[in-house]
Amino acid sequence: MSEEKVQPEPRQRRTLDVAALRALGHPLRMRILDLLSQHGPQTSSTLAELTGESSGSTSYHLRILAKQDLIREIPERSAGRERWWERPPGSVSWGDGAETRSPAGRAALQAATAEFHRLRNDETTDYFTRRADREPEEWREVSASFTTIARMTPAQLAELSQQVEELITAAGARYRDQEGEGVRAVTVRADLFPLKQLGGAS
């Protein structure tokens, strides 16, 4: 009997406006959004423990993220002053529309993009230079970092990007809510971009 293929759920994609990008340009707010994505719902107190900040600080930044609909409260879990927050399902796009082409919009986009990649670079460096040695062998053996160089046209890169996105989306749909022994949150990444041309424009 063949295994039934899990079809990925349709993913809602939101293009962030300048106000949302400004919110994400702050290091702690980007970190909070990442923690909600990686570890599920949290309160200002649990986020304070994870970030080393005060609960007053995390509570303040949670409200800013919520104002931009980047996160949402879970009313059924909240009680009294303890409010639980989660990241809504779906993906976001940084966008390159008219709004982000103004000087203020471009600055907001650059700040948010810088924080996004700084966090990912820090996580990657931390794992492969420090944490990997402390992980069980079964996790060390399956951790990997791949890279290659190809010479492609924009159309070919677009096709590859779509294929990679479909593969990652399918994995997310299959394993997003999995629980049980041996299950941990993992990060799945792909970086696709043209390299700087020697002697050309940056």
Rank of each mutant, 00 (worst) to 15 (best):
A170S: 12
A98I: 11
G180N: 01
K196T: 11
E165L: 13
I71S: 03
T15H: 01
S44N: 10
R101W: 07
G200L: 01
R14Q: 08
P154N: 02
L65H: 04
W84R: 06
Q162W: 05
L70I: 03
G182E: 05
W84V: 00
Q156H: 04
L195R: 08
L70D: 00
E4K: 12
D126S: 12
R130L: 03
V6I: 14
Q12P: 02
R120L: 04
G182C: 07
S57I: 10
A104T: 14
Q178N: 04
L160G: 05
P41K: 03
D96N: 14
D17C: 00
S57H: 12
G180A: 05
G40P: 00
Q156L: 03
R134C: 06
R140D: 04
P10L: 00
L160V: 12
S57M: 14
I149D: 12
A185D: 14
W139C: 00
A171E: 11
H39E: 10
P8K: 05
D34L: 12
V164L: 09
S59E: 13
W85T: 00
L36Q: 01
K196Y: 09
D126T: 13
I74T: 01
Q110M: 14
A107L: 13
E138V: 14
A150H: 15
T51C: 08
V186R: 02
E73H: 05
S44M: 04
A201F: 04
R11F: 07
I32Q: 02
V164A: 09
S54E: 08
I71C: 05
G25I: 09
E179M: 06
G200C: 05
I64D: 09
T125I: 09
F146Y: 14
A173R: 02
H61L: 06
L157I: 05
L157D: 01
A201E: 15
W139S: 10
A20H: 05
T51A: 07
T148Q: 08
R130S: 12
L198Q: 13
S102V: 13
T124D: 06
E76M: 02
H26G: 07
R87V: 10
S37R: 07
R83P: 09
Q178S: 09
E9S: 03
S45G: 04
E135W: 04
W94P: 13
F193W: 00
A173K: 02
E99Q: 14
A107Y: 12
K5E: 11
D96H: 12
E76R: 08
D177V: 00
G172V: 13
A158R: 06
E86S: 10
R63W: 07
R189G: 15
E73L: 05
S45W: 13
H61S: 01
T147C: 11
S59V: 08
R120S: 06
I32P: 01
G200M: 01
T153I: 03
